[in-house]
């Protein structure tokens, strides 16, 4: 079984639209995993049925038992995050400020503080319109978007793939350079970087490439909207060559992406011209490259 992960560093490069197109091309031979925890949008194109849902717990918050509390104020004194409030005659924890370090619980002489694991959302196994399975999640606001959720989604996707005998897992990875993207990359057989030829797109791609190198992973690059600035596109091309990143495709600036999204369709379903051809060729290339690594 092979795992292909698609990441971008910067938002708005077209990563999710491109991943959804690949999901359609992979058909029912692949399990899809949406690990873009900040902007989990792929479900808008792939029509999941949310058939299997489970609660997701992550992170702990302190809760003070008012019955047991002796109002000594020790908790407030040790908290470095100003999460303990004194109101009139009682102490309470503001959940949004609590980091879950449990220092207050550790020093409370009355054992009045419990660390309670937080239900921060749900994760799902769905059937999608390409008749395969997708594992995805929906988190509440302010939830800890740690690597834990990403690891969970990927693990479940692997289980589904094993049970249904599928050869491939296709992962829509997380943005940025922090913990979630590290978790997205871990265990990948091949990584695809989707970037755009803008100063910020190139800058963010280089930052995330450092992570790929740390993990010794093989990777390829898709330059979306390459004609927005051909000069920077060429620089990205050179960067790929120097760093042994396979160049997979250049995709032109095309508002068909938006038009397809507006109808809730992937490019493959919406367009039978140039874009679909580029994406089909790219997908063929990606499968070959993944196999050869």
């Amino acid at each position: 079984m092979k795992e292909i992960v698609i990441i971008s560093g910067k938002g708005g490069t077209g990563k999710t639209s491109i991943t959804a197109a690949f999901a359609m091309l992979a058909g029912n031979n692949a399990v899809i995993a949406d690990c873009d925890v900040d902007a989990a949008d792929m479900h808008l194109l792939l029509e999941p049925d949310f058939s299997h849902a489970e609660d997701f717990y992550s992170g702990f918050k302190a809760v003070i038992d008012q019955q047991k509390c002796t109002k000594c104020g020790k908790c407030k004194q040790v908290c470095r995050f100003d999460a303990v409030q004194k109101n009139d005659d009682s102490y309470t924890v503001t959940p949004m400020d609590c980091e879950g370090c449990a220092y207050c619980a550790e020093v409370c002489p009355a054992a009045a503080i419990q660390m309670v694991e937080q239900n921060v959302g749900k994760w799902y196994i769905s059937k999608i319109k390409s008749q395969t399975e997708m594992v995805h999640a929906k988190l509440g606001i302010g939830a800890d978007n740690s690597g834990k959720l990403v690891a969970k989604v990927k693990k479940e996707a692997k289980n589904v793939a094993l049970q249904t005998g599928k050869d491939l897992i296709l992962v829509d990875g997380s943005p940025g350079i922090g913990c979630p993207v590290v978790s997205s990359l871990s265990g990948a057989d091949y990584v695809i970087l989707v970037t755009e030829p803008t100063l910020s797109g190139f800058h963010d791609m280089k930052r995330v490439f450092e992570l790929i190198q740390n993990f010794h992973l093989s990777s390829g690059c898709i330059i979306n909207k390459y004609d927005v600035n051909v000069e920077i596109a060429e620089k990205i091309h050179d960067f790929c060559e120097t760093n042994s990143v396979d160049h997979i495709a250049n995709i032109p600036y095309d508002e068909t992406f938006t038009a397809a999204m507006t109808e809730g369709k992937t490019i493959i379903e919406f367009d039978d011209g140039n874009l679909t051809n580029i994406l089909k060729d790219s997908w063929k290339k990606i499968l070959l490259l993944t196999d050869s690594h």
Binding site: S58, G59, D144, S146, G147, K148, A151, K155, C179
Partner: peptide, 8 residues
């Protein structure tokens, strides 16, 4: 350990 949030 595979279930911990940080520092696996």
């Amino acid at each position: 350990i595979s279930e911990v949030a940080h520092g696996a």
